[in-house]
Amino acid sequence: MWDYSDKVKEHFFQPRNAGVLADANGVGDVGSISCGDALRLMLKVEPVTDIILDAHFQTFGCGSAIASSSALTEMIKGKTLDEALKVSNQDIADYLDGLPPEKMHCSVMGREALQAAIANYRGEVWSDDHEEGALVCKCFAIDAVLIEDTIRANNLCSVQDVTNYTKAGGGCSSCHEGIEEILVKVMVERGETFKHGAQPKEEAAPVGMTNLQRIRKIEAVLESVRPQLKRDGGDIELVDVDGKTIYVNMTGACAGCQMEALTLQGIQQKLMEELKEFIKIVPTKVSSLSRAMKG
């Protein structure tokens, strides 16, 4: 059974704002019946101020689809349409204290429902060209369509390439067989054969970011987590950046803490999201200061 948070269960068993909203002036129907998750979002918008006075939902779907629909209505009530549009599917998941990656992939449709309902309110037609394939990488919720498109667009030829470009396969690595199968298929299309151990393409540095900008970004991420670490009597410092490997030094109470691995994993995730590339964070015992002195 899925490991749902208490918040998800609460919103599933006691959904807020469920049912038809009689005087709705914006309605959005989105989802996929084949996947088993679809949502109707109904809004009552104040025409002068564009403020959402009320929001209701009806959902055909699983526990997380119902809970995330309920959460969405709670989050957008009282917001203006522009403010509401800033709510992302990740925000909904955060509001519910997280969701399993498989569920993020298919059952959280809040943002799309909002766009559709607002388009309907404004008399526009909303369409979504989003296409979903079977989930390949469960660690980062990456599907087959995205992997295939990325391989094709960038002429990728190794699993490492795919990981660099999409993050798929960068976690537990159990999907590498699946990624290889997609590589084989796409490479045949362009008249090549997949060879294990092919040299990955040169590092996929994020477009338009110099080394300095990249390091500054890394420091900014570390800065953003610092307050939490300090609260627990610890700290983190950047030691070096070598391609995809980021060396850090955990100090104070963080050093040797049993939760160190978990903390680092969280920071690594955050770094990957900000840098939009796959990186590895490695703790070192040598502080930057002593390195500098030895140097």
Partner: peptide
């Protein structure tokens, strides 16, 4: 017909 969601 009552409910025909846009594929999202």
């Amino acid at each position: 017909k009552a409910f025909a969601p846009t594929y999202a």
